[in-house]
Design a protein around this nucleic acid. Structure first.
Lengths: 156, 156
DNA sequence: TGACAATGCTCAGCAAGCTTAGCAATTGGA
DNA sequence: TCCAATTGCTAAGCTTGCTGAGCATTGTCA
C-alpha cells in the first residue's frame, strides 16, 4: 500500500497545488524581473495609485511583506512611490509606464500557466469560500481610505 | 466599481487561499513547536523511515528545503536522522516516539482548521488535477528506494 | 582497476510569508 | 492646547520556498 497523494488532507493538497502553480509562474516571470507577488501588485494598482497598507489588505498580506515586495518592484522600475500630500505618513504606490506595458503583456500567458481543470467554476467558488471564511473581507473600507476593519489583525 | 477579489485569476485565488489556511494551521501548531511543513514530514514517515530525498520528492519540494525542515524537526525532537548502512550518502528520517504522539494528537484538530466548503469532493479532484498536471507524479519509485524519475528536475 | 557520471546531501544566498518592536504623523479628547 | 491613542510604515529576525555550487559516495564502463 504505497502512500499516495490521494489520501492527503485537502489543506495539504491546496498548499502543494498553489506552490507548483506559483513556480510555474516564476518560470515565465523571471525573465522580465517580476515575481508572482509583484504581479498581484501591478494588478491592484492598475487603475489608481493605492497606499501601501491598502495594497496589503487587498492582497491579504502584512504591511511589512507588501513593503518589501513594492521595494523590489520599485527597484525594477515597475512602480513609483509617491508621498500622499494629505497624509504624510502614507506612500502611494503608482504604476510606471514600464510597469503598465509589462502587465498588459502578461494577460496573454495567463492561460498557459494555469492548467485546465474540469470544473473550474466550482474550484473558483470553493477558493473564494475558503478565503472569505478564513481571511475575512478586507475590501470593505474602499480605495480612498482605510478607516474600517483591519485586514487580518484580529489575532494580534 | 471597487475592485473585488471575485475577478481575480484562479491562480491568484489559489495562492491566497493556501496561504490563509497555512496561517491558520500555524496558530494551532506553534504552541507545540511544529510547522505545516513539519507536519507533512511527520505524516510521510508515519509508517517507515524514508531517506531525505524521497521525502522531498513526495512533498514536491527540493532536497535543500526538505533538509532544513527536517533539521528543525530534529531540533524539536520529533524525528531522528539515521545513517543508511547500505548507502552512506543517505540519511533516513525516522519519527521519534514524541513525534508520533504529537502527530496522533493532531488528527483531531484537522477538521477545525480547514473550513467547510460546499463541494469538497470537486475541490479535491481539482487540486489533484493541478498537482498531477503541473508537478508530475514523483511517487512511482516506491518507498524502498529512489531509482526512478526525478521529482521536478525536468526543468533544471 | 581506475576514471567519469550519477546520486544524496549540504552550504550560501535570494524572495516572500510571518512576528515583534519601533518611529513619525495624525486624530481625538480633556 | 497638549497628551495619548491610533494609524502608516520600517527594521530585524524567523521559516520555508527557490537556485547554483560543491563534496562524498556509489555505480558504470572501458
Amino acid at each position: 500500500m504505497r502512500d499516495t497523494i490521494d489520501d492527503w488532507p485537502t489543506g495539504r493538497l491546496l498548499s502543494v497545488a498553489a506552490r507548483l502553480v506559483e513556480q510555474r509562474w516564476r518560470e515565465s516571470l523571471e525573465r522580465i524581473g517580476l515575481s508572482h507577488a509583484g504581479l498581484i501588485v501591478l494588478h491592484l494598482v492598475e487603475r489608481d495609485p493605492l497606499p501601501l497598507g491598502e495594497l496589503a489588505r487587498r492582497a491579504r498580506v502584512t504591511a511589512q511583506t507588501m513593503g518589501r515586495t513594492v521595494e523590489h518592484l520599485e527597484r525594477s522600475g515597475y512602480v513609483r512611490l509617491v508621498a500622499d500630500p494629505s497624509d504624510r505618513r502614507r506612500k502611494l504606490v503608482e504604476r510606471t509606464e514600464e510597469g503598465g506595458r509589462v502587465f498588459d503583456g502578461i494577460g496573454a500567458i495567463e492561460a498557459t500557466v494555469f492548467p485546465t481543470v474540469e470544473q473550474a467554476a466550482v474550484l473558483r467558488m470553493s477558493l473564494l469560500q475558503i478565503i472569505r471564511h478564513v481571511g475575512g473581507d478586507p475590501e470593505a473600507p474602499g480605495p480612498d481610505g482605510a478607516d474600517d476593519g483591519p485586514a487580518r489583525a484580529e489575532r494580534g
